[in-house]
C-alpha cells in the first residue's frame, strides 16, 4: 500500500446509510490518516454530507463500521466515549448564516461545548479559552457580547471555526466550509483552516463539490457519485490519471479562467451507461498503490492498461 507507516485516525468499512427505504450511501470504504486533509467530492445529493454527518453521529448507519482511533463509533456509545468523541471530533458547517444560534451571544456560542462537559476549572479559565479561540481565528475579544447577525459571512464562518477549535479537537469534518462564502473571502477561510491544521496538527475531512478548490488543500481525494465512492487517490494522482468516467467528467467541468480555452473545452458527459454491470459486478479495486476505483473485472483490466500507457 505504501501508506502503512501512517497512523489511521478514522476508518470506514462497507458503510451503508439508509433513510427509510432509500439507500443514500453504500459500499463506502476509506481510511483517513492522522494529519492529512482528506477530501470528499461529489455533486449535490451524492451523499457526501451524509457520510460526514454519520461520522459526527448525527445520522444513524444501517450497515458497516466507522472506527475512530480503532473504536467503533457508529453505535450507542457510553458516556465516557461520547464525551471523548465530542472533544476530539468537531464539525464546521456549510452555511454560516444558518449554523449559528441567532439568539445567543458569541460568548455562549463559542463556549457551548466547554459548558456541556465543564471543560474548565473556573470562570476565568473558560473566558481565557474562549478568548484564545476567538483570537486564533482572527476575531477580537470584544466581539464576545455581540450577536451573530452583527457579523459578516466570513466572520460568522470563523466564529463557527472557533466554536470547533475551542474543544481542541484532533479531527474536523469541514462540510463545504467555503461554498456559501463570497469568493473574495474564500481564500481567507481556507488559509485559516490550513494555518490551524499546521499549528494544532489537525486532520480534516473536507467535503466539497468543487474539485478545483480541493486540489490545493487535499492530500487525498475521494470522488463520490450517487452514494458510492467511485475513485480515491492522492490529489495530484487523481488530477493526472483520472480513471473513472465520472471523475473525468468532473475534471472537465472545472472552469478555465481563459475565455478562449474555456470556449474550446470539450466537456465529458457522464451518464452511467458507460458501464456494463449486467453480469460482471463492480467492486472496490486498487489499481495502483493508493489509487482505488469502483470497477468490474473488465474495467479493471482496461484501467491497468491505461495506467501503463499514461
Amino acid at each position: 500500500m505504501g501508506t502503512e507507516k501512517k497512523e489511521v485516525l478514522v476508518s470506514i468499512r462497507d458503510l451503508e446509510i439508509k433513510f427509510d427505504e432509500y439507500v443514500a450511501v453504500s459500499n463506502v470504504n476509506f481510511d483517513i490518516y492522522k494529519g492529512e486533509t482528506f477530501s470528499l467530492v461529489g455533486e449535490s445529493g451524492s451523499g457526501k454530507t451524509t457520510i460526514g454527518r454519520a461520522l459526527m453521529r448525527i445520522h444513524e448507519t444501517s450497515k458497516g463500521d466507522i472506527f475512530f482511533k480503532g473504536k467503533k463509533i457508529n453505535q450507542k456509545v457510553g458516556a465516557r466515549l461520547h464525551k471523548e468523541l465530542i472533544k476530539k471530533m468537531q464539525m464546521i458547517f456549510q452555511d454560516p448564516a444558518a449554523s449559528l444560534n441567532e439568539r445567543a451571544t458569541i460568548d455562549y456560542i463559542v463556549s457551548e461545548g466547554l459548558r456541556n462537559f465543564r471543560l474548565y476549572k473556573n470562570e476565568t479559565e473558560r473566558q481565557q479559552k474562549v478568548r484564545e479561540a476567538l483570537l486564533s481565528v482572527g476575531l477580537l475579544p470584544e466581539h464576545l457580547t455581540r450577536y451573530p447577525h452583527e457579523f459578516s459571512g466570513g466572520q460568522r464562518q470563523r466564529i463557527g471555526i472557533a466554536r470547533a477549535m475551542v474543544m481542541e479537537p484532533e479531527f474536523i469534518v469541514a462540510d463545504e466550509p467555503i461554498s456559501a462564502l463570497d469568493v473574495s473571502i474564500r481564500a481567507q477561510v481556507l488559509n485559516l483552516l490550513k494555518k490551524l491544521q499546521q499549528e494544532k496538527e489537525l486532520t480534516y475531512l473536507f467535503i466539497a463539490h468543487d474539485l478545483s478548490v480541493v486540489r490545493f488543500i487535499s492530500d487525498r481525494i475521494a470522488v463520490i457519485h450517487k452514494g458510492k465512492i467511485v475513485e480515491l487517490a492522492e490529489a495530484e494522482e487523481l488530477f493526472l490519471n483520472p480513471l473513472h468516467p465520472y471523475t473525468k467528467s468532473l475534471l472537465s467541468a472545472i472552469p478555465i479562467p481563459d475565455p478562449r480555452l474555456e470556449k474550446n473545452k470539450k466537456l465529458v458527459v457522464y451518464t452511467g451507461e458507460e458501464h456494463d454491470y449486467s453480469e460482471d459486478l463492480p467492486k472496490w479495486k486498487e489499481i495502483k498503490a493508493g489509487h482505488f476505483v469502483w470497477a468490474n473485472d473488465a474495467e479493471e483490466k482496461r484501467y491497468r492498461m491505461q495506467m501503463k500507457i499514461g
Binding site: I58, Q90, M91, F93, E102, E112, N116, G160
Partner: peptide, 9 residues
Amino acid sequence: YNLASSCLG
C-alpha cells in the same frame, strides 16, 4: 445550528 449544538454534546 441545532446540529452544531448536538455535535457539541
